[in-house]
């Protein structure tokens, strides 16, 4: 039982990270109907930004409080990835908006290849280990909860709440939802569609940067290759939850995290990704629009 709870906690932590990345996928998909394949690499960029900031901070201010260091890492990573995603949207996606559906998909895949190889070229192909930032561990009976895990879950929850507020209660969120429903109509009604889409990319990137920082803190290592697998899993999470649906992305993320950790714990670690993908295929076959996705009505 304790073992189960332990795995549940691990899954929850991992799932929070996936959920944060999944939101970026789902938002962009919702607003411009495009799979932003490069989003996983934005997540990776976020992790690298956090890593570099961490190195700089610790070499200048050796005794810096962990909380402050983390905060600086988060803020800088969010800023830098936002810049990147904003630029990418401007340069690579916007000119293709409204064109052939596959063209933005291919540019996004191209962008993903560019980003991961850019980091490989500039930062080297090897894994970058960082000393553990947060070491504290709490014991509840035989269950171990690390401060890292608590931090990850708390940061995720806070961000989700903030995010939910933005999308549902602010004019910006209203503009986003309007653009999502009908871009032309929104533009006619005075919504600055370009700006709204840009902000969506920026928000997605900021959340991915947080996820990247958390990922770095959790695993203590960054690599140029880190974008792909977590990216695909986060995308899987978004689709599993019902792409376009924000609660769906979080739910999907948590589910994927749980499936992964429970499967590794009880069955085989080697096949954990097979289990994830198989469950995705299985869910979609029976519910083709994901768990919380709106059913697609076939208009005849």
């Amino acid at each position: 039982m304790e073992y189960f709870i332990q795995q549940l906690l691990n899954g929850l932590t991992l799932g929070s990270i996936y959920g944060l990345v999944a939101i970026g996928y789902t938002m962009v998909y919702g607003i411009i109907g495009m799979i932003n394949f490069a989003h996983g690499d934005i997540f990776m960029l976020g992790g690298f930004a956090a890593l570099i900031v961490f190195l700089i901070l610790t070499s200048f201010f050796a005794g810096i409080p962990v909380a402050l260091a983390l905060l600086v890492m988060l803020v800088v990573a969010m800023l830098v990835t936002s810049l990147w995603n904003w630029t990418i949207e401007r340069v690579a996606y916007r000119p293709l908006r409204g064109s052939f559906r596959l063209a933005p998909l291919i540019t996004a895949i191209g962008m993903s290849i560019v980003l991961s190889n850019f980091i490989q070229v500039t930062q080297g192909p090897r894994n970058k280990p960082v000393p553990p930032l947060v070491n504290d561990v709490f014991h509840f009976g035989s269950i171990t909860v690390s401060l890292k895990q608590i931090l990850i879950v708390i940061v995720t929850s806070v961000l989700l709440a903030a995010f939910w507020y933005i999308v549902n209660k602010t004019p910006l969120g209203r503009a986003q939802r309007a653009t999502e429903q009908d871009r032309k109509m929104a533009a006619l009604l005075g919504v600055d569609v370009d700006r709204t889409i840009s902000i969506t990319f920026v928000m997605g990137a900021a959340l991915a940067a947080v996820a990247g920082t958390m990922y770095l803190m959790y695993y203590g290592v960054a690599s140029f290759n880190d974008g792909f697998i977590p990216g695909v899993k986060a995308f899987t999470a978004a689709v599993l939850g019902g792409i376009g649906s924000l609660p769906g992305a979080v739910l999907g993320g948590l589910l994927i995290g749980l499936i992964e950790s429970l499967w590794s714990a009880y069955f085989s670690i080697a096949y954990k990704d097979v289990a994830t993908f198989a469950i995705l295929a299985f869910v979609l076959i029976f519910k083709p629009t994901g768990i919380l996705g709106r059913p697609e009505v076939e208009k005849v």
Binding site: T236, V239, S268, Y271, F277, L284, T289, G290
Partner: peptide
């Protein structure tokens, strides 16, 4: 067969998943 009902991007992600499943099985 199983992906026939899926459309668009759902089809894309499931085919991606199948591709990965086959690779992972070959690997493990």
């Amino acid at each position: 067969f199983p992906v026939l009902r899926l459309r668009g991007d759902y089809l894309a992600i499931v085919t991606l998943a199948f591709g990965e499943i086959i690779r992972l099985v070959l690997m493990n």
